[in-house]
Amino acid sequence: MGKRSNEPLVWSLFSSGGVIAAFMIPILLFLFGLAFPLGWIEAPGYEQIMTLVRHPLTRLVLFGLCSLPLFHWAHRFRFTLYDGLQIKHLNELITVFCYGGAVVGTLLAGYILWNIP
């Protein structure tokens, strides 16, 4: 009779986002955030990187890489505010902000990836 909980769905998004973030973010952040700008490794040219990004499989990976980690963030950040800073009176607002943000980010990622020429 009780309301069905969303927790299993939200938690599986959280954990799959955690997995993809753990495996893929450090190397990409290292390359694009440090190695390329500081000239440690030569940055790929525009056409070269576009060839990679245009491939449907790359787009699919990039979509997963954008969407799932956002749900990971939403879940963790929500409970950091709840337990860490004990902001409990704004619980509903925070929930909407976090998961809403992840949904908006997912739509934006889909839009951008779909429209890559």
Partner: peptide, 11 residues
């Protein structure tokens, strides 16, 4: 837990 903010920043 705060690492999640940087995960979101990366996205």
């Amino acid at each position: 837990e705060l690492s999640s903010i940087f995960v979101a920043y990366f996205v």
